[in-house]
Design a protein around this nucleic acid. Structure first.
Lengths: 162, 162
DNA sequence: GTACCCCTACTCGGATAGCGAGTGTCCGAGTCGGAATGG
DNA sequence: CCATTCCGACTCGGACACTCGCTATCCGAGTAGGGGTAC
């Protein structure tokens, strides 16, 4: 029951993208460099985000990834879904339909009580993630940022955006 | 991001134990047989529940597993924690402390915004699971059970508890 | 001077190894119950 | 008939292979941008 490391990587990368001027992006190598992460592996995760429609990819010189829609319309759940998929963590295999006391398949009240309890829990979990958008996080991060770090970022971005 | 199959297995097994007369139990082999599951693997999972204090084990002839406390005091979260451990699914590795724009380690507002958002989501998830007890599930299952199945179960249990 | 073409460099995308956690099984340690035995 | 002892069977517990998915990497496909050339 552990989440892929890629979720953390891409979440931070998307927050960085959200801080950029509208319409601009960064290549995967730069997104990895910003947090000192393995470039090839970061590239793989960004592909997943592109497939899911969270970011758009631009090939060729000066290309890279940029958010596919405004940061206020991208939630943490969108990122989790892109990396991990939308399948629930708890998979009900309906084991109650087998065994010496099993009733005929159609006679059960479905879904089973255990399954529905876990479904409720996951729905609550997803609701919390859907309530947090990239713009929320970017705003909070920006409000806590020191002037020094803000200057460092501006200088670094200037070198990347050319 | 998928949960161990053992959670489903042991959850159903515990509901069965909750339906038994107070103080009585069943061996792991019987718990597996009831849902046609691999006996050895079920035994392994029941060991985890015993280590976590959710069930008590009794060795020797006529022994087996029984709930360590009343069914109303055992939640689904207790079972998940026993099988999966209590570590959160999202592990923050603090990647923000590295990179060309990283500030000194102590200067960050902690925890990071992404981390706290995932923590809130997992807290909500756990709260839902903690709100559901074995007695809740057992009561719902019992209320939906047909007379035929109730008789089958009584006969099967008589053969096991014999 | 301008328009066109080509070529280089850059970036994404998918295909390919490596590794660790979950999956699945088995055999030894420990214990209870009952049968056999002697008083 | 009853108490004691011993034996057998049963059950848990941990140690041992195996599989699958996440981790990590590299190379090919495709494209933008700039320099060169012809008009």
């Amino acid at each position: 029951m552990k989440m892929s490391e890629g979720v953390e990587w891409t979440a931070h990368a998307c927050v960085l993208l959200a801080a950029l001027p509208q319409g601009t992006g960064l290549p995967a190598a730069a997104l990895a460099e910003f947090h000192t992460l393995a470039p090839a592996y970061m590239a793989k995760h960004m592909q997943a985000l592109a497939r899911a429609g969270v970011v758009e990819s631009v090939r060729g010189a000066g290309g890279g990834y940029r958010l596919a829609r405004p940061a206020a319309e991208i939630s943490l759940w969108d990122i989790v879904e892109a990396i991990e998929g939308s399948a629930p963590a708890f998979r009900c295999t309906e084991i109650r339909k087998d065994g010496p006391c099993a009733a005929p398949a159609g006679s059960f009240h479905r879904p089973c009580e255990i399954h529905s309890a876990f479904s409720r829990a996951e729905t609550a979990w997803r609701a919390e993630l859907k309530a947090v958008t990239l713009s929320d996080i970017a705003a909070m991060v920006a409000s806590k940022m020191t002037a020094q770090r803000r200057a460092d970022m501006a200088a670094w971005l200037a070198g990347k955006l050319g």
